[in-house]
Design a protein around this nucleic acid. Structure first.
Lengths: 133, 133
DNA sequence: TTACTTGCAAAATATTTGCAAATAA
DNA sequence: TTATTTGCAAATATTTTGCAAGTAA
């Protein structure tokens, strides 16, 4: 329940934030601001989308990534299904990829005083279907 | 020598491409298109920068990444110093980080027919200096 | 009631396109 | 000479800002 999750994080529960999280949940894949807007229930101003998503990313509820397309992508961050993607540079398809880098969070904090909060990891290449075209 | 490297890749050797590579070499850190432009020898049109960098990234000479700032960053890809970054979300500082995820390239290719060419990996958090402010 | 969030209008930035001229091979 | 690359002029797309009104706590 997103309402509870937002409260736990100390964030205000607004219908816009709930709508964004629901949209991302249903989409089940990384989406741009435009795509989220087309697939959302109710009208949300694009400025609100940018600001809400920035907050949701900051608090770890949403994964923000980049596929070298000049536009940000967002995906719901699920505790039980953390994953990244294989990105085809030809057809732009993104395939879920369950491997995740093993970041030495404690060591980074101890050695550098840097507090790790999140990461992006994406693999680029050519998919099977594009190779055989 | 960048001239030889470009030739090896089968790319045309142009003064613009050389200038971009030299600029990135001197900068020693990820840079935006604007920043590259300000630090380049000779004038290069921004359209040429976008197109040249896309080519250099495609051929593995340049690492293109993203720091959730709404703008693409580019860094020279060095064979002997492959690295990623610790990115402070407060002060925006990027610190080199030598750990690199161990991507099972052969397995991905064998299982999925996906040909891995490159990847991005960045760690976000709060740096020591910003924590103590 | 108070601080946070949203929507609006506009601005600022970033990126791409088509085409002709220039240039590398 | 031929294919690739560059520069120009726009266009398009993406992201941010300031501020007043709205809303959650």
């Amino acid at each position: 329940m997103f309402k509870e999750i937002l409260k736990e994080k100390g964030l205000h529960v607004t219908k816009q934030r709930i709508a964004i999280l629901e949209a991302l949940k249903n989409l089940k894949k990384p989406a741009t601001i435009d795509f989220i807007n087309e697939n959302i229930i109710g009208e949300i101003h694009h400025v609100t989308l940018y600001r809400s998503l920035a907050t949701l990313v900051e608090f770890g509820l949403v994964y923000q990534t980049d596929f070298r397309e000049g536009v940000a992508y967002f995906e719901l961050q699920k505790d039980n299904y953390h994953h990244h993607h294989l990105v085809c540079t030809r057809c732009k398809e993104k395939k879920d990829f369950s491997y995740c880098p093993n970041i030495p969070i404690e060591k980074i904090n101890k050695d550098l005083g840097f507090l790790v909060q999140s990461h992006i990891f994406e693999i680029f290449g050519v998919c099977n279907s594009c190779t055989h075209k």
